[in-house]
Amino acid sequence: MSMLNSDNLTFEYIRRDEEGNVESITKALDGVSLEIKKGDFVAILGHNGSGKSTFAKHINAILMPTEGTLYVDGMDTREEEHLWDIRQRAGMVFQNPDNQIIATVVEEDVGFGPENLGVPTEEIWKRVEESLKAVGMYEYRTHSPNKLSGGQKQRVAIAGIMAMKPQCIVLDEPTAMLDPNGRREVIRTVRELNRREKVTVLLITHYMEEVIHADKVIVMDDGKIVMQGTPREIFSQVEKLKSYRMDVPQVTELSYELKRAGMPLPDGILSVEEFVEACGRLRQSGGFGE
């Protein structure tokens, strides 16, 4: 079952001068073809301006493809009659937590989506309660969003999407404006939702440590998909990632550097535990006794 299916998706920005003549055409997306299965946790990496946010906005039918097609749960995003269905099924969380909270009380904000969908009042209350509990913000339901931390605000925004009962959540750099604790909070919440509620997650980010648990990582550059695979496959290619203005977790870089200096370590070490284990094995085997 595929949640998202894009075929040769292309999007062009046309800039015009004052007389309306075409000044330049920028291909923000250039022939993106990919499939995301239901229930997957997929991360898209890419530097600022690589086209990853433009791709996200297509999923929600905020932008329409110049060429190619994108199907969300089998619906073509270009067909107007599917617009609200698509937006209900593929919810979207944005970067700036302040600019996506509409109401001045947490629970009212979470209820905003269901209200727009015409959900009956009692059902709205049920959904608001469930979603706030799912992101661990139920005890803040009567608070003002202004008094919450960045991480808490993003969790409220996620609850607002969950209350629409989507099948997929697209998060467009949800942690870019948060501190490390807020980032961990948000990522933990998203992983929980993926695991427990089986929601498909598409996480767009440039923080490497957030993608190591993903089922699949896609790297974008210049509007194209340039790498895809499991986190381990991706992070095995340190030099290639760096050429796309990306980075790797410190321990991955350390292992890579050690390997280059002659230590026979495996590729794509993602965590401290894996690193310690690999070093331990190395010491015991291969005649490297103390």
């Binding site: 490390p180 604790n181 977790p249 410190q250 321990v251 350390l254 401290v272 690193f275 070093c279 331990g280």
Partner: peptide
């Protein structure tokens, strides 16, 4: 106090704890 050390610092301490 809600902070941490760089990941490599942890890696070195973990090695030490594993007897390396």
């Amino acid at each position: 106090i809600g902070l941490a050390a760089p990941q490599v610092t942890y890696a070195m301490h973990a090695l030490q704890e594993h007897g390396i």
